[in-house]
Computed example of a mutant assay.
Amino acid sequence: MQYRTLGKTGFEVSEVSLGTWQVGGRWGEPFSERNAERIINEAIDAGVNFIDTADVYSDGASEAAVASVVKGRSENIYVATKCGRQIQPHTAEGYTAQRLTGYVEDSLRNMKTDTIDLIQLHCPPTEIYARPEIFEAFDRLKEQGKIRNLGVSVELVDEALMAMQYPNVTTVQIIYNMFRLKPSEVFFSKAKENNVGIIVRVPLASGLLTGKMSRATTFGPDDHRSFNRNGEAFDKGETFSGVEYGLGLEAVEQLKKLFPGQEPLAAWAIRWVLMAEEVSTVIPGASRPEQVASNIEASGLPALSAQQMQGVEQIYDKYIRPSVHAQW
């Protein structure tokens, strides 16, 4: 495992880390504490020292499971969580400093800890970035010793750029993958200038970039890949990176030709993300321990060739850019 600096936090974090949206079971299935423990321990055994969770993942059960495992380990593990998505309807009007402070207090209780390493606003509405009192609330929490750092998780590149106007924002979490190239155009260089850590989520485009899906693949009714393809529940960019499923499958077939050999496309897709030196860490999820091992293999793969990097961009330009690039 290789390690990179997470911006202003100063944390040295594993370049391949763990996201826990589906930890404990597949999307839409009941949470399994035992399976969650196995996944998290597998990741730490492999050198992962950064774990990303959220208060809305399994209604706090994910936070509790992560904290329980981390407390039982001797390694220094950084835990990031998120707040804000409990606000329903999820509108800017629902955001208040008092409410967000309450969510942080709830997360502290879920994790049975006094301090959170990194708390992130969880994809707040765009209007929130024009409300300094929201960001100032986290300065008070830091003064009280309840958080060490503030970050934001965003949907839009424009939101990432707006977030960096606040000096206390130490990290930005954003979708970046072979089907979502826009962040690398402007945001990455600005983040580097501002010493803001970049956490990459959805590196496999909800599984499309594993190369294992087909038109015959089915998803359960409670899986967001069934019910959120058009943004019915939340931003559609979170599901298949906003790519129409059939079009994504066509693009994946072309990507496979760029990466022949024994390693799965998933590992190369994660390695592609790590080719950007500005990226601090990538947080693929896992619903089984063996998926953790597969994801982490990417850290040991050789660098992509110039021909492969150019090939990815050409496939993006042909299949993905027209429908996706301008939206996020």
Rank of each mutant, 00 (worst) to 15 (best):
S32V: 00
A61V: 11
E159P: 01
R73W: 07
A80I: 09
G248N: 08
E313D: 13
G300Y: 08
E29Q: 13
I39R: 03
E250Q: 13
I51L: 04
N230P: 08
G94L: 01
A67P: 02
K82A: 05
Q291L: 10
Y103H: 13
I320A: 04
T218Y: 11
S305M: 03
F227M: 08
R131C: 10
L121Y: 00
I40L: 03
A92H: 10
K190D: 08
C123N: 15
I296F: 07
Y129A: 03
K257P: 13
A46Y: 10
T5R: 14
P302I: 01
G145N: 03
I39E: 07
I199H: 12
I119G: 05
V312F: 09
V312C: 01
W268Y: 05
F135Q: 07
A160C: 09
V79K: 09
E290P: 06
T218C: 09
A286T: 10
D117G: 00
E263L: 12
Y129D: 09
Q22D: 14
I147C: 06
A36N: 04
V172C: 08
A191N: 04
V48M: 08
P203H: 04
L249T: 09
P30I: 00
K190H: 12
T281R: 00
L6G: 03
A65Q: 04
P30G: 02
Q291M: 08
Q22A: 15
I174C: 10
V196S: 02
A293K: 15
K192Q: 14
M164R: 05
K192Y: 11
E277P: 00
G10H: 01
Q262I: 12
A233V: 12
G84F: 05
R109S: 13
I174G: 11
E244C: 07
Y103F: 15
Q120W: 06
T96R: 11
D52K: 02
I39D: 00
N149L: 09
D158T: 15
A92T: 11
E193I: 07
N76C: 13
T171A: 06
E29S: 15
G207C: 01
A306Q: 15
I175G: 06
Q327W: 14
G211A: 09
